[in-house]
Amino acid sequence: MSSWSSADSAVSSSKEQSENDERQTRNWLDLPRDVTAAILLKLGAVEIITSAQSVCTSWRSISKDPTMWRAIDMRNLGDLHDMPYDLEIMCRHAVDRSCGQLVDINVEHFGTDDLLKYITDSTSHLRRLRLAWCYGISDEGLCEVAGKLPLLEELDISIGNINDDGIEVIGLNCPNLKSFKFNTQVFTWPYIESDDEALAIARTMPELRHLQLVGNKLTNTGLCAILDSCSHLESLDLRHCSNINLEGPLGKRCTEQIKDLRRPNDPTNDYFDASMRDSGSFDEDYPMGISDTDFLSDDDYEDDFYAFSDGSDFSDNIG
C-alpha cells in the first residue's frame, strides 16, 4: 500500500506541477487587455516601439491602440549620438499612432521647430508639453504653434533658446496655463540683471499655480510684478536667482503668499536629480509564460527597427 501511495503521490505532484507550469505559461497572454496596456505604459514610448511591441502579437496589437499614445514620454539623457535609432523619426511615428488623441508629450533634448509643428498639427488637445534642453526650438518656432495650444496647462521650456518674446506669445495664446518651468543652467550671473522674462510672465500668465525659474536673472522688481499679477501661485522656485533679495518685506510677502517657496540659496540637489533622471529600460529577458509560438518573426522586428535607424527615412509602410 505504501508503494502505491508513494506512486500516487508522485503522479499527483507531477500533475500539479504540470498544471502550475501551464497556468504560468498562459498567465501573461490571458491577462485582460487593459491590464496588459497598463503594464506596457510603464515602459515608455521608446521601449514599447523598440522592444515591447515585438514580444508577441498580442502586445503588438495593444501597442497600436491610439489610447496607448495619449501620453508620449521620450525623455532621455541627451546622449543622442549613442542611440541606434533616430528619436525624431520615432516620435513622429508615435504621434501618428495617437490618431489625434495626444494630450501629453516630452521631447526633451531632441525637439526641433519642425517636430513641434508636426506635433501641434496632429492634435489640438495638448495639455502638457515638455521641451527642456531643446536648443532646436526657437522663439519663431514656438510662436508659430502657440495658437494651436489653447488647452495647454503645463509647459517646460527650460534650458534652451527661448526668451521673453516666446514667453509672451505662449502666455497670450494659452489662457489655461497653470504650470510653467523656465529654468536656466545653474551658475551665478555676476552683474547681469534682466526682468524681461519675469515681466512677460506677469503680463500674460495670471492663472499660474506653479512657476519654476531656477537660475533666472530677474530682480526684486520682476518678482514683485509676478506676485502682483499671478495671485493664484502656490509654488515658486527661485533657487540660484542671485539677483533676488528676500530680506525684509518682500521675503515676508513671499512667505505669506506662496505655500511652497524655494529661496535663492536653497539646495538644488533634487533639481539636478530631476534633470538627469533616466527613463528606465526594458528587461532583456522576456517575461515568463509567453509562448514561443506567439513571438513575432525577426522580419517584423527588423522592419520597425530599420525605420528608426539613424539616417533612414520614415516609412509609411510601418505598421
Rank of each mutant, 00 (worst) to 15 (best):
184 T>E: 09
180 F>P: 01
247 E>W: 03
113 D>Y: 06
79 D>N: 10
213 L>H: 01
295 F>S: 03
87 L>E: 14
145 V>H: 03
74 M>Y: 04
87 L>C: 12
242 S>E: 13
267 P>Q: 09
94 A>W: 02
234 E>R: 09
287 P>F: 00
315 S>M: 09
8 D>N: 11
155 L>V: 02
300 D>W: 07
124 S>E: 14
152 L>G: 00
203 R>L: 06
214 V>K: 00
153 E>W: 02
14 S>I: 15
81 H>E: 15
127 R>P: 00
63 S>L: 11
92 R>Q: 05
234 E>I: 10
114 D>P: 01
25 T>D: 06
206 P>K: 05
137 I>Y: 01
302 E>A: 14
12 S>I: 08
256 E>Y: 05
182 F>A: 02
303 D>A: 15
138 S>F: 04
50 T>L: 13
313 D>F: 06
178 K>D: 05
224 C>I: 15
39 I>V: 08
72 I>M: 05
22 E>Q: 10
199 L>I: 13
201 I>F: 01
161 N>D: 12
245 N>F: 06
85 Y>H: 10
286 Y>S: 07
19 E>A: 10
46 V>K: 04
307 A>M: 13
174 C>W: 00
107 V>C: 08
147 G>V: 06
267 P>S: 09
245 N>E: 08
68 M>H: 02
149 L>C: 05
236 L>K: 00
96 D>A: 10
241 C>Q: 05
49 I>M: 10
47 E>Y: 08
131 L>W: 01
136 G>D: 01
296 L>A: 07
88 E>Q: 07
4 W>L: 15
286 Y>K: 11
43 L>Y: 02
306 Y>H: 11
187 F>S: 13
5 S>Y: 14
216 N>T: 07
29 L>G: 12
110 F>V: 08
11 V>C: 07
210 H>Y: 02
279 S>T: 10
275 S>N: 12
227 L>G: 04
60 R>Q: 10
68 M>I: 04
139 D>H: 01
271 Y>H: 07
